[in-house]
Design a protein around this nucleic acid. Structure first.
Lengths: 215, 215
DNA sequence: TCATAAATCACCCAATGGGGTATGTTGCTT
DNA sequence: AAGCAACATACCCCATTGGGTGATTTATGA
């Protein structure tokens, strides 16, 4: 079965070239090519694509906005962003909007086809330079990675409140004063918190709280 | 000019095979092949690599730790992680430690060579599945941007290392074992860390370390 | 050469924290 | 009315941590 691809690209030369490449290659079928995203809904409904090749720089609705709309309305459609620039701000916006991958306009045709197949199969192609930027965030320590998923530890409101005070660095006595309860009560709550978080020390609890946005 | 490659890989068969492939291919020169990272510093100084091919699963010092050390000491060296499994946790750790990219062990030789050339040229080869996970982190807002600024507390290398172990939740005894020093020495370092960070407890130190990307 | 910083080890003492167990009051839900 | 979860309090025991003081070795630079 061919992969059905729709193109959103304002430059007619590029648009036609892409369409020609797709239709001239076995396994790919360009079912629509559009100069802008102003009628994105009809465009999608008519072309019924598996994968959308989206130019990020378009007149009218930007590729980012169209991406967001398509992802909300047709979540099964994979979107591959293409742009001439290596602008990491735009890239992040597009990825946040729901794009599955990203490719630069001067990548050779075979990379386009590979990338389309890859998103179609659930992958996430990113060009080397973009990947490098993404990794740059990690190695530059400008980010804190947050473990995804299970952040619901069923802490009660009071427990969250005390955990927050712990994160702020207070000792039991201070926490007791601030929460208007006794020292022993603080300790009882803390013990419960530890059990729920599956930790055995204050610093582990603080770490989990910070990283997972508890408290 | 050939790309100088050093290999860290505990499996002798794999190590020899990689070495043979590299030395048998024009443009690549394997200048060292090591079974573990225990003498990583001498290994690097002797082989003077442009790119290091690092096994993530090694006896003794793990590939992740060696990666961190090499990146700190020889920041111009590119590190390509190789692993048998698609374990995203380990891969993230390695990327955070400073690896430029990674490759799976059952990838064919030409992919190895491509990946080496790519990191050498400043790229960042990442497989689709890992790229997807990376994107997931960004789009799911699991990433916390940290305001840059006064994060220079003049911690020594050793102090940063111990702080990292503290962040990981180890107690003094464990840290002593892991750092191959005595309990009392750990405490001495910790006291110095507290003074430099202007804190007075483990949890405060952990909090600062996480939030400001120390360690 | 002298000073300095880093890294290592040690001992003392007091404060803090962690685990267990127990008891009581609310207030909501079944 | 009984059950339950959250909240509150108290006591015991001992492990861990934090602060101070002092010491040696090594390396680096003024």
């Amino acid at each position: 079965m061919d992969i059905r691809v729709a193109i959103f690209e304002d430059n007619k030369l590029v648009r036609d070239a892409l369409q020609a490449i797709l239709n001239g290659t076995q396994g790919y079928d360009c079912t629509g090519a559009f100069a802008d995203g102003n009628q994105w809904e009809q465009s999608i409904q008519r072309s019924k694509p598996d994968v959308v090749l989206m130019d990020i720089e378009m007149p009218g609705l930007s590729g980012i906005e169209v991406t967001r709309h398509i992802c909300e309305t047709f979540p099964e459609i994979r979107i591959l962003i293409q742009t001439a620039f290596n602008d990491s701000d735009k890239i992040f916006q597009a990825l946040s909007a729901g794009a599955s991958g990203y490719i630069l306009k001067n990548d050779p045709p075979h990379k386009y086809l590979d990338a389309i197949t890859e998103v179609y199969n659930g992958g996430a192609p990113i060009s080397a330079s973009v990947a490098k930027k993404l990794l740059g965030f990690f190695s530059n320590k400008n980010v804190v990675l947050v473990a995804p998923g299970n952040t619901d530890y069923q802490l009660s409101d009071r427990e969250k409140e005390l955990l927050r005070l712990m994160v702020e660095g207070h000792n039991y006595k201070d926490i007791a004063d601030k929460a208007f309860i006794s020292y022993e009560t603080v300790r009882t709550h803390v013990k419960h918190i530890y059990k729920k978080l599956h930790v055995a020390s204050r610093s582990e609890a603080v770490m989990k709280a910070i990283q997972q946005g508890l408290s």
